[in-house]
C-alpha cells in the first residue's frame, strides 16, 4: 500500500514542548483522522507536513518526495484547509480566486464555480463578513478546485454547527469516491471520525501513540467494567489505565483476548469509543 505522507524520525523542539522521533504514515486512498487533545502537537505535525515548519531532525516525504527538491510539485498536489481564515480578509471570493488560482497548474474554474454554487457562497462580499462555517467552505472550495490528491485539514469542524459538520463529513466521503484522494485531518471532536475515518492516529504530548485502522482499534481496545476485588498487580497489567470508584472499576484494555482469558465472564466489556481511548491514554500517562 502506498503512503502519501511518510514521517521518519521527525523531531522538533520548542521551549517546553517537543515532538519526538515521530514516525507517521498516511495511506493513499483513505481518510486518516489525527486526534489528540489541544496542545498535543497536532498543529506542529501538520505544519511540518506542509513545510511551514522545518523539523530539527528526521525526514518528511510527501508523495515519496522531499521538500528540499520538490516543494512546488508537492504543493501543486495538496489542498489545505486551516482552522482559521488565511485568506485576505478584505477581499471577496472572486478576488481571492484571482490570487490563488494562477498558482495551480490544474486549476479548474468550472469546478470552482460548481462548489461556490453548492456551498452557496456569495462572490462579491468580503470574506471577513462570513461566518466561520462559510469561511471554511471558501477554503474547501479552493482546496478542491485544483484536483488535489491530498487534502490536509487542521481542525476543519471546530466552530461549526452540527448540521454543517454532517454536511462536511458527507462531502468528504463524496470526494473520496473516486479512490484517488487521501484525506488527513486533525480534530479533537472524535465523533466526527467514528464513522468516516479509516485510520486513526493518536498523538499525546508530542508522541504518536498509535496509527491504527479502525478495525484494529475496534478489535483490540475495549472498555472493561468490574468489581474492585478483581484487581491486583497481575491482572492490572492488562489495562492501559484503571479508573477506580467506590462501586467498582472501569478500565481500558489493549487486548480483548487477554481480558477474556483473565477475567472471563466476571467483567462487562463494552466497545471503547475514541474519546474513551483518548481519556484513558491520558490517565495512563499521568500515572506512569
Amino acid at each position: 500500500m502506498e503512503n502519501v505522507v511518510e514521517l521518519k524520525g521527525v523531531t522538533k523542539n520548542f521551549k517546553g514542548f517537543s515532538v519526538e522521533n515521530m514516525n507517521l504514515e498516511v495511506k493513499q486512498g483513505y481518510i486518516t483522522g489525527f486526534i489528540g487533545e489541544n496542545g498535543a502537537g497536532k498543529s506542529t505535525t501538520l505544519k511540518m507536513i506542509m513545510n511551514l515548519l522545518r523539523p530539527d531532525a528526521g525526514e518528511v516525504n510527501i508523495f515519496g518526495m522531499d521538500y528540499k527538491q520538490h516543494e512546488k510539485e508537492i504543493k501543486q498536489r495538496i489542498g489545505f484547509v486551516y482552522d482559521s481564515n488565511v485568506f485576505f480578509e478584505g477581499l471577496n471570493v472572486k478576488d481571492i480566486k484571482r490570487i490563488v488560482a494562477p498558482a495551480y497548474k490544474q486549476w479548474d474554474d468550472a469546478l470552482f464555480y460548481r462548489y461556490v454554487e453548492q456551498f452557496e457562497l456569495p462572490l462579491n462580499k468580503a470574506i471577513k463578513t462570513f461566518s466561520k462555517g462559510m469561511q471554511m467552505k471558501v477554503s474547501l472550495a479552493i482546496a478542491l478546485s485544483h484536483h488535489a490528491e491530498f487534502i490536509i485539514m487542521d481542525e476543519p469542524t471546530a466552530g461549526l454547527d452540527p448540521i454543517f459538520r454532517r454536511e462536511l463529513l458527507h462531502l468528504l466521503q463524496e470526494i473520496m469516491e473516486d479512490g484517488q484522494r487521501t484525506i488527513f485531518f486533525s480534530t479533537h471532536i472524535t465523533t466526527d471520525l467514528d464513522r468516516i475515518a479509516d485510520y486513526i492516529a493518536l498523538i499525546q504530548k508530542g508522541n504518536l501513540l498509535f496509527n491504527h485502522s479502525i478495525h484494529e482499534i475496534e478489535e483490540n481496545y475495549t472498555l472493561v467494567k468490574g468489581s474492585l476485588d478483581l484487581l491486583d498487580r497481575d491482572t492490572e497489567q492488562a489495562f492501559v489505565h484503571v479508573h477506580r470508584t467506590s462501586t467498582g472499576f472501569e478500565a481500558l484494555a489493549k487486548n480483548v483476548q487477554n481480558v477474556e482469558h483473565t477475567f472471563g465472564n466476571d467483567v462487562v466489556m463494552e466497545r471503547a469509543s475514541l474519546e474513551d481511548i483518548m481519556y484513558y491514554f491520558k490517565g495512563g500517562m499521568q500515572h506512569a
Partner: peptide, 18 residues
Amino acid sequence: TYDEKAETNRLLNSLPYT
C-alpha cells in the same frame, strides 16, 4: 502592512511557491 494583518505567510507558503 496588509500582509502583516492577514495570515498571508501561511497562505503563500501553503501554495505551490518556494
